[in-house]
């Protein structure tokens, strides 16, 4: 009925309607984040749940992050070496690899990988709980579903994203070393000297801030989409869970890149 009314609106009004809904949704997400964040510190019971989530989001992501970061570093090493060699600047390979990883690729690729691995399962888990009345069961037991389900995930994301990003950067630099130095014959000492000489604390703290923001964005969007699975207009039941999961991954990836641009302009 409401959808039908929307379709009958003139194009400009529909655009305005969509914009208003977007703003409304963004506001609801922000309030959702604030409440979940506030409930992180409510009780000691949250600590055990957070540790379990750190294992799920952090520890279980290490293998995939290792693989992706190693190959990313190796590709950057390979491409950069040939590009720099053209100008006789192959000695700057360490600086190029480390700066591109720490400032940009590390935080972004880590966030996208965790979105795919852990974010999607956060949405699906909460979505299934929502459609099978488990969230209602928590409410009637007077257990706040946000505090019980979302806060531990949010706390774990805030802890895990920066650590996994640092891990990504480190393994990526080793990947660059593998191709640039061991495979193509660059100088090992020069590689590591350029890394330490050109990588400033501001680069590292910028990457750290980015990873923190991405952690909050990914976790909030994925949990929000799952939590409101039952409110979706495009589908119901199990299909709504799958649609919510897809929307969560796509929206997270888009917002990671969007916020990356904004943060890069502000931080560097």
């Amino acid at each position: 009925m409401i959808e039908g009314r929307r379709a009958a609106l003139p194009p400009v009004a529909r655009l305005g309607d969509a914009a208003l809904r977007l703003v409304g949704e963004a506001g609801a997400m922000f309030l959702f984040f604030l409440e979940a964040f506030g409930r992180i510190f409510r009780s000691w019971g949250q600590f055990h749940k957070t540790v379990r989530q750190i294992y799920f989001i952090g520890v279980k992501s290490i293998s995939v992050i290792t693989l992706i970061s190693l190959f990313t570093g190796m590709v950057i090493g390979l491409q950069m070496y040939y590009a720099l060699a053209k100008f006789g600047a192959d000695g700057f390979l360490g600086a190029a690899v480390s700066l591109s990883l720490v400032r940009e690729l590390g935080p972004v690729l880590t966030a996208i990988m965790i979105t795919g691995r852990a974010g999607s399962s956060m949405t699906a888990e909460i979505g299934v709980m929502r459609i099978s009345e488990q969230v209602d069961a928590l409410r009637v037991m007077d257990i706040n579903p946000l505090g019980f389900l979302v806060s531990p995930k949010l706390a774990a994301s805030i802890i895990c994203f920066p650590i996994l990003t640092a891990f990504f950067d480190l393994v990526g630099m080793l990947g660059g070393y593998l191709t640039g130095v061991l495979l193509l014959g660059g100088n090992s000492g020069v590689y590591w000297y350029r890394v330490s000489a050109y990588l400033k604390m501001s680069d590292i703290s910028g990457g750290f801030i980015k990873s923190l923001v991405f952690g909050v964005v990914v976790c909030t969007i994925c949990c929000y989409m799952g939590y409101f699975t039952h409110m979706r207009r495009d589908s119901v039941g199990p299909e709504a869970v799958s649609q919510a999961t897809t929307s969560a991954v796509v929206t997270s990836c888009v917002l990671i890149l969007l916020s990356d641009y904004i943060l890069t302009s502000l931080l560097f």
Partner: peptide, 18 residues
């Protein structure tokens, strides 16, 4: 909060946390 602690509910499919 007090009222809900005095309530018990059995949902249609049990609604146990999986």
């Amino acid at each position: 909060h007090c009222l809900r602690q005095r309530m018990g509910v059995l949902f249609q499919d049990g609604a146990l946390l999986g």
